[in-house]
Simulated scan of single mutants.
Amino acid sequence: MYSLDDLLRLMARLRDPQYGCPWDVQQTYATLVPFTLEEAYEVADAIEQGDFEHLPGELGDLLFQVVYYAQLAQEEGRFDFASVVHGITAKLIRRHPHVFPTGELYAPLDTPRLNDTEVKQRWEQIKAQERAEKAQAPEQLSLLDDVPAALPALVRAAKLQKRVARVGFDWPNAEQVLGKVREELDEVTAAMAEPTGSSRAQAQAEEVGDLLFSVVNLARHLGVDAENALRGANGKFERRFHFIEQALREQRRAIEGCSLEALDALWDEAKRQEKPSPNGSAASLRD
């Protein structure tokens, strides 16, 4: 069976300027980013689908991205894969003093366990200290400094909101956030009523953005992960639309020739079949 050392050796061979793969030799940090994001989502998809047969392969693809970046950095004399491993290990030991009180990985496991609340409080204190240490000057430090700009927008919105909530900049309850959602929806309606033109399009985009941000806030207050909720909604939409397509195939009808009313009727049938049956299990869709 191949080992991690074998994977590192393979990566070095692929990047060999003379004997390596031309495509791999041409890659940079920036060109790899889209592949890294895609591989991460494929891991998430395999987990959501319960596809544990293919999960090792997806995890391997994601690991290869890390190895790739480390190889690029090693070629430039910045760091290597061992530095990556050391950095994450050291950070996790530092962030879990309740598990590693002496700061040693192989210390005896004799520390009393903390409850979830205590662990969260300790975690946030340590992260805040790390952020302070990273800042060049205390007056330049922002709570939002280390929220990555490249995160998916829903994820980043939730992180920004969670971060400022630590200092009390937050709605007190979900009911008040729901009121804000309604307010933002009214502002979208008002933007739609503006005269046609570039300012109208800009206003609509801005107000829709505010609406989405407030919906993420509502999700956070309800304990719902907005990104996962939207992924679930996407999956539900796909299932129901597949049902429509399959039903029309069985009827030998083209979807392009169907009225919206006919499509809506099939959509309602898809929803009906998704509802739990009397024995408690959901009816399966024909897709």
Rank of each mutant, 00 (worst) to 15 (best):
G57T: 02
L105Y: 13
G57M: 03
L62E: 04
T102S: 11
E133W: 14
P108G: 08
A128P: 05
V119K: 07
D51N: 14
T102W: 04
L55G: 00
E39P: 00
E75L: 11
A44L: 14
Y29E: 11
A46S: 05
V84S: 13
K134V: 13
I88S: 15
E130H: 13
I93Q: 05
A137H: 15
G103P: 01
D45I: 02
P34M: 05
T28H: 07
Y69L: 15
G57Y: 00
T89A: 15
V33A: 11
R113F: 10
L37G: 05
A70G: 06
A30N: 09
V43N: 01
Q74C: 02
V99E: 05
L32T: 06
G103E: 08
L92V: 10
V119L: 04
D45A: 10
L63N: 04
A82Y: 09
P101G: 04
Y106N: 12
H98A: 04
G103S: 05
H86W: 13
A128I: 05
R131V: 09
D45N: 04
L92A: 13
Y106P: 02
K134F: 13
E38L: 05
Q71R: 04
H98T: 03
A46V: 00
K91E: 15
V33C: 08
P56F: 01
T28C: 07
F52C: 03
E39W: 00
P112T: 04
I47P: 01
A128V: 06
T111I: 04
G77H: 04
G103N: 06
Y41P: 00
F81Q: 07
L62W: 05
T111V: 09
Y68M: 12
Q49E: 06
A107V: 13
V99S: 02
Q136E: 15
P56K: 01
F100G: 01
E39M: 03
L32Q: 15
I47L: 13
N115G: 11
Q65P: 07
L109N: 14
V67I: 15
L92F: 11
R95V: 08
V119Y: 02
T36H: 12
A82M: 10
R95W: 14
T89R: 15
Q49S: 06
T36Y: 09
S83K: 05
S83L: 09
A135C: 14
V85F: 12
L62F: 13
V119D: 02
E124D: 09
G77C: 06
T102M: 06
E53A: 10
V33H: 08
D61W: 03
E53I: 09
A132S: 15
Q49H: 09
E124T: 07
F79Q: 03
A73H: 03
